[in-house]
Amino acid sequence: MNRFSVAAVAAALLAVVWSGPANADDLDEGGALYAVQNRKYTASHEFSVNAGSLPMDAFYKGYTASGAYTLHFSDLWAWEVVNAAYSFNVDTDLRRELESNWGVTPTRFPTIQWLGNSNLVVKPLYGKLAWLNGSLLYGELFFTAGPAVASYESDGELQSSGTYVGANVGLGLRFYLSESWSLRLDARDYYFVSPKDVKSTSNELFFSTGISLNVR
Rank of each mutant, 00 (worst) to 15 (best):
A148V: 01
Y126L: 01
L171G: 14
F142H: 12
S161F: 05
T111K: 14
R216W: 06
D25L: 13
L183S: 04
N117D: 14
V104S: 03
V82S: 05
S118V: 02
L141D: 02
S19L: 14
A10F: 04
R95N: 03
E46I: 14
V198E: 08
T144N: 07
Y41M: 09
N83Q: 13
A32C: 06
Y191C: 02
G210Y: 07
G52T: 02
A7I: 11
A85K: 00
T92M: 04
V81Q: 02
Y63D: 06
I211G: 10
S48N: 10
Y138M: 05
K40S: 05
E204Y: 04
E157G: 00
D93A: 15
L125Y: 15
W114P: 06
V122C: 03
S160T: 15
F175E: 03
Y164P: 00
W77K: 06
A22Q: 12
L71Y: 13
L132R: 12
A65G: 15
P195D: 07
A32G: 11
K123M: 08
W181M: 11
P106R: 15
N89A: 02
A187M: 09
G134H: 02
T209S: 11
Y63L: 14
S154K: 01
G62A: 03
G139K: 04
A187D: 03
Q159E: 10
T64Q: 06
F4H: 10
D75P: 02
L177F: 04
R184M: 06
A12V: 13
D155V: 09
F73W: 11
E97T: 13
E140W: 01
K128F: 00
R184L: 08
P110T: 10
Y60P: 02
L137P: 00
A22V: 11
V198N: 07
S44C: 02
R174Q: 11
E140Y: 05
L125D: 02
F59M: 12
D57P: 01
R39K: 09
S182L: 11
R184K: 11
Y41V: 08
H72P: 01
G62Q: 03
G62N: 02
A11L: 10
Y41A: 09
G210H: 04
G162S: 06
L158E: 15
I211L: 15
S178I: 10
Y63I: 13
S178D: 09
R174C: 01
L136F: 08
R184I: 03
I211Q: 02
L94W: 01
D186Y: 01
L54D: 04
L27Y: 10
Q159M: 11
V165I: 15
G116S: 12
R184A: 09
P110R: 06
F142C: 03
D189K: 13
L183E: 01
M56D: 15
M1W: 05
Y176E: 07
L136A: 13
S44N: 13
L129E: 07
S87Q: 04
W131Q: 07
Y126K: 11
L27I: 11
P110Q: 08
D26I: 04
N23S: 10
S118G: 07
L98H: 04
N50R: 15
V17A: 10
E204W: 01
R108Q: 12
P195F: 09
